[in-house]
Design a protein around this nucleic acid. Sequence first.
DNA 1: CTTGACACATACCAACCGGTATGTATGATT
DNA 2: AATCATACATACCGGTTGGTATGTGTCAAG
Lengths: 201, 201
Amino acid sequence: MNASVKTPDITRLKLLEAAFAEIHRHGFQAASIMQILADTELTKGALYHHFPDKKALGLAVIEEMIRPRLAAMMFDPLAETQQPLAAMQALLRAKAAENAPWVVALGCPLNNLMQEMSPLDEVFRLRLNGLFQDWVTVVKEALARGKKSGEVKKEVDAAQTAFFIVSALEGCIGMSKNTQSVEAYRGCLKQLGLYLDTLKR
Amino acid sequence: MNASVKTPDITRLKLLEAAFAEIHRHGFQAASIMQILADTELTKGALYHHFPDKKALGLAVIEEMIRPRLAAMMFDPLAETQQPLAAMQALLRAKAAENAPWVVALGCPLNNLMQEMSPLDEVFRLRLNGLFQDWVTVVKEALARGKKSGEVKKEVDAAQTAFFIVSALEGCIGMSKNTQSVEAYRGCLKQLGLYLDTLKR
DNA sequence: CTTGACACATACCAACCGGTATGTATGATT
DNA sequence: AATCATACATACCGGTTGGTATGTGTCAAG
């Protein structure tokens, strides 16, 4: 009956991708199960076979879709750098250089979910905060290495500064989404870059 | 029948206050009309007499609840200062000194709505962005005055920097909400303060 | 060849949603 | 005193939601 018979992991992946897109567009609460099924051309039988409920689907999206993307984009480039400031500057320049930054249209998937779900559901909050804290930790340890290598001022509080950098970046993305302006986005990234310069020794 | 007869503006205000709280808790889409009515001990007749639909109620909350509060808290202190950096530092210290910052629990009402509604509804986005831009403009003009008075470096791009400052602040609040940590909140505000110092001449 | 687990599809449901239509008490106007 | 708009209250409605119960085709094991 189905075109692709007996390929459960592919089906699951299709559901995750569609759910990721739908959640990114409308948020978790407003994300429609029916819309996800329409996008995937699947049925409720398939979805509820792979996920016990909507919440589990959302959590799976966080762990299996958002986390790996964020890791590839933000964690890996800072993984073992001795010059975190230069690496982050390069990262910001690369993001600013995109001709159609997708984050300006719909924002950062992680931040969107954090703002929506954290005050509403403790399980969601803990998962999202775990991912966020991992990010902050990556930046923090990179800054610590930068202090050792002499790129970063010794006075810099690595933990607080890392938290602030990630916060400011998410803030820039969020405000640019609201403004719907790539120009504002690039300007905000530029100012964040200028701030990073002040951390140099 | 009703205890307070013929007091339409009071009724309207009660609806706005309850709607503001409900929206702050659950976001606009998830805000329940029935819950607002339960909180106010009113009925649908009252609500739909004062507001044509839910959307109009939400927009009224933005203009009549969020805007004045934001203006009192953030606009007025910077209105005519010649030392914007000092004024903002004082503002940040005051916010950090609160023993139970309400923004850590539920976040900034403006930012919450921006993140949720901007990609979904253009009317909402324009209203929210209007308020946000007013905020940025207040900061921008304060920075401009600071440049004139000699407090702020001349190289500072007032417009971009103002956008960044507000973005970073909203970012700090949002991330702290997610972390549910007053300590993180204070640390983030402190780092924002250190950034402001770098704008000094 | 049969059995049974897996991977779905179909049909159905109670709950809740925003919104509306109608009824009614009150106060001001004429 | 009669009229009428205001300011609500009550009852109701269609649509959508997430979720479930049941049916069915496929494949692997025995």
